[in-house]
Design a protein around this nucleic acid. Structure first.
Lengths: 343, 343
DNA sequence: CTGAAAGCGCTTACAG
DNA sequence: CTGAAAGCGCTTACAG
């Protein structure tokens, strides 16, 4: 392993000064074509790479974004929400397209994250991703804004939120999928998922559900809603609670695919056929939704566009542009779990 | 947004020299307890964070690892192998435990990666992860070794491979799951998955399958094997090819869960009941395996331990320790797709 | 179009 | 236990 070459080595070999090497390699137009070629050729031969620590230190920006993935309360690898994993793929790819590196970190919501990444010069900005109790961490967002940090967040897009938020149109998604069930003749529709301010995205989906019921002049019963977080176990448990209440229902709108998969298991354990007796719908369109038994009717969130929107917004913010929160459209995906797909 | 404080600011406020601040904050034992406390207190008040670019530049190491995720030929987000996504979670977590940051990057196998990360001082070492044609990129591994790069790879552990490889015991996994099928009375067992040198992990699984058949004195027919890569579509297509050959088979060992899920779809489309007529098994134990219809009997790879092994090996290598390639045990997970689970 | 000088904010010998 | 000095490898005015 030979000594790592520096810009001084290149300069000496090219017979120019070191700053000229630096300028040439960054494609500065003030360098003559001939010297640029010569320098590039030598750099390639020596396998020279600009030292990022030195260039970042001098220029005071890193061309790196940090992705903070929250997951409370489960510190279990296997429980990372599949939707976030697919977002991660999209974010990584969009960073590469824009010439940024991506630093990834899992965080406990309760942890001490804040602006460490930006303050320590490791990243120019931060992307926040994850479910968890919003009430618990809203004050941290306020703090980030106060510190002038660059950050964007995936979540529920609402007026008066601190900072920039990118999210899908959860209300519309909940509305559309509930309308679809009503259109199929279902009338006694339950909802599984936390419908509280701590889980704004689920709450938005719940509001969409309520809106669809109200428009159809169907009753909205508190007993038809059971809290659940986005895991299969929680969905299973919530469905058991719903069944235990003894109400009559012919459909269940679930706030996520994992909840729906757990709910289907509970229903089937109790001899309730899906979709014949009870229709079930999810939200997210994760890979497993397609392979569930029966395959899940769900609302697709476009993780590809979401990743692009997050990265674009953050880079815009770093570049002192004015960026706005944005709501992305959702798409209804009909499969067999609602009984409405062509057979 | 106030000016970012430096170690000089802390030094002045604490009435000490700047190097003393640096020593105190890194927990050097040569700093007196009293001054260390004072310095830490002031640093906290100013929300001071050590500038990583400066400290990395000076100390010539970054405490950062880079994860390169390969995926050829599909540049599609949704097709990232779920198993790798779960590895990513585990690697991230283990980096955090060891005090390292993680840089993540998706790469085309054909791309120009090599040691860029290490040469440019962005990472101390690299983790390589991904399927793809091994024959196509083996020379790159040789190049990495020649350049003295620090890297570890997830893959097939074999003698004479360049560098350090961590992988699961694919041969044992293939052997065990085939034995299980034989034990359940299946005799005409096919295999779906590329059994060539370009896909050494699949090849190892195939060898385990062959070993189990041979031990049971069952014939190994070339016509019973069809190539497939790890996607649902490829599994579907391979199963159609197998069916088209008109051979009689009562079980299909698939080289991955995604292949198995595709194969089940093809079999069911042709009126072949799973598992009654044909038993099907997978490999990986991804989330969707549990929710498939019927749920997949499969071989679990422990992504948690795998991530720890990769990170430990790489950090050991960076620390100039002698590290060895390692093979991780697998675990048979029996579900309904093989017809053998208790009903 | 190119060079000499300065400096980004740390860590690391070295001296005391 | 602490300080003065040097330097990691770049980029950025500034001068010509």
């Amino acid at each position: 392993m030979q000594e790592k070459p520096t810009s001084f080595d290149i300069a000496q070999l090219a017979g120019v000064s070191q700053p000229t090497v630096s300028r040439a390699l960054r494609g500065s137009p003030t360098v003559s074509e001939a010297t640029r070629r010569k320098i590039e050729e030598i750099a390639r031969q020596l396998n020279y790479k600009v030292d990022k620590n030195a260039s970042n230190l001098r220029s005071q920006h890193t061309n790196t974004l940090a992705l903070l993935l929250f997951e409370d309360p489960t510190p279990d690898d296997s429980l990372i929400n599949p939707f976030f994993l697919s977002m991660l793929g999209s974010i990584t790819r969009n960073c590469a397209i824009r010439g940024y590196d991506l630093l990834v970190s899992f965080q406990q919501l309760s942890g001490n994250w804040h602006t460490d990444y930006q303050d320590s010069g490791k990243a120019d900005g931060v992307i926040l991703l994850g479910y968890g109790d919003y009430d618990e961490y809203r004050w941290r967002l306020d703090k980030l804004v106060a510190e002038g940090a660059n950050f964007v967040r995936w979540g529920s897009v609402q007026e008066g939120q601190p900072g920039i938020t990118i999210g899908c149109d959860n209300l519309q998604g909940g509305y559309e999928i509930t309308r679809h069930l009503i259109g199929l003749g279902r009338r006694r529709i339950a909802f599984l998922g936390a419908a509280s301010s701590g889980y704004p995205e689920f709450q938005d989906r719940y509001r969409g559900y309520v809106k669809a019921l109200s428009e159809a002049e169907l009753p909205v019963l508190a007993a038809n809603q059971v809290d659940a977080i986005s895991t299969e176990e929680s969905g299973h448990e919530a469905a058991l609670t719903l069944i235990g209440r003894g109400l009559d229902f012919d459909a269940v709108v679930c706030a996520s695919d994992l909840i729906a998969i757990g709910a289907i298991r509970a229903l089937q354990e109790h001899g309730l056929a899906v979709p014949d007796t009870v229709a079930v719908t999810g939200f997210d369109d994760i890979l497993a939704a397609n392979f569930a038994n029966p395959p899940l009717t769900t609302i697709a969130q476009d993780s590809r566009e979401a990743g692009a929107a997050l990265v674009d917004a953050l880079i815009g913010q770093i570049g002192k542009q004015t960026v706005e929160s944005r709501m992305l459209p959702t798409r209804l995906v009909v499969r067999r779990s609602c009984g409405g797909a062509p057979t």
